[in-house]
């Protein structure tokens, strides 16, 4: 059995817009990944714990509410605390360009904003995932 890339797709925070997350989940499935979809309104603690139990290689989060500067880094820290240091963590959603450098500094490997081609996300994961 070949190694399979496992991705947790989650929506931290309180906004209820999961269309983008679903599009990404579907695209990743079609790329041959195993996508664990946990749905809406996840706390950072829930996301990190689910990532641990599922032993995912990638955590992909989507936020459209503006809470990304607070929630994304929190998930990164929790994952590291749990010993999940090799996980590729990416984010997406309505995120101002100006916020992106700080998020990258905090450990988000890439941020995908509206208009991103799904194949770019797939390629980024394939090129950067640690297995």
């Amino acid at each position: 059995m070949e190694k399979k890339i496992r991705v947790l797709v989650a929506k931290p925070g309180l906004d209820g817009h999961d269309r983008g997350a679903k599009v990404i989940a579907r695209a990743l499935r079609d790329a041959g990944f195993e996508v664990i979809y946990t749905g809406l309104r996840q706390t950072p603690e829930q996301i990190a714990e689910a990532a641990l139990q599922e032993d995912v290689n990638v955590v992909a989060m989507s936020i459209l509410s503006g809470a990304h500067p607070h929630l994304f880094p929190k998930v990164v820290n929790l994952l590291h605390e749990k010993g999940m240091k090799d996980v590729l963590i990416i984010g997406g959603g309505v995120i101002p360009e100006a916020d992106i450098p700080a998020l990258k500094e905090a450990g988000i490997a890439a941020v995908f904003t509206p208009g991103t081609n799904t194949s770019d996300v797939v390629d980024f994961i394939k090129n950067n995932v640690k297995m």
Partner: peptide
């Protein structure tokens, strides 16, 4: 066909 999967059972177990 692709070997991919959506594993969605956790949604009900949050």
């Amino acid at each position: 066909f692709t070997g991919g999967a959506i594993l969605g059972d956790r949604i009900r177990m949050n």
